[in-house]
């Protein structure tokens, strides 16, 4: 199970990477994609959509189940991963890279303190 050290994680199995201090790139973790099984469709948010932390920002339809992706931060969606429309399996193949879901411009930087480190996330999934 891949858990890169340079990313932050949520209890809902999303990962977050902060670019230029106020842009959050988000996706789902390797653990999440493995639990989901083959991803067959991703419902992406509209660009410019305003989201609150904890609100559903995308949903992932997989063979076994469907899962909501909750926004780990509050802010505005500024870009979505268009490649997922043609190849949703990128989430399975490369969850931390080509399988990213969207970028959000962060409106409340304090929320960034709430995330789990790679070490803490590793512990969390060991318990599941």
């Amino acid at each position: 199970m891949l858990i890169p050290d340079d990313l932050k994680y949520t209890r809902e199995h999303e990962w977050v990477k902060v670019l230029d201090k106020d842009i959050a790139v988000i996706g789902v973790t390797d653990f999440a994609q493995s639990e989901l099984s083959d991803v067959v469709y991703v419902e992406l948010p509209a660009v410019n959509k305003k989201v609150n932390k904890g609100e559903e920002v995308a949903s992932v339809e997989a063979v076994k189940t469907v899962a909501s992706v909750y926004s780990p931060v509050s802010g505005e969606v500024i870009e979505v991963n268009e490649r997922l429309k043609d190849d949703p399996s990128l989430i399975n193949k490369d969850p931390y890279g080509d399988g990213w879901i969207c970028k959000i411009k962060i409106s409340n930087p304090q929320e960034l303190d709430d995330f789990l480190s790679a070490e803490q996330y590793k512990k969390l999934i060991a318990e599941e």
Binding site: S37, D38, V40, V63, K64, S89, N92
Partner: peptide, 8 residues
């Protein structure tokens, strides 16, 4: 076994 490689 649920899957070995990918269900599809």
């Amino acid at each position: 076994p649920l899957q070995y490689t990918s269900i599809i």
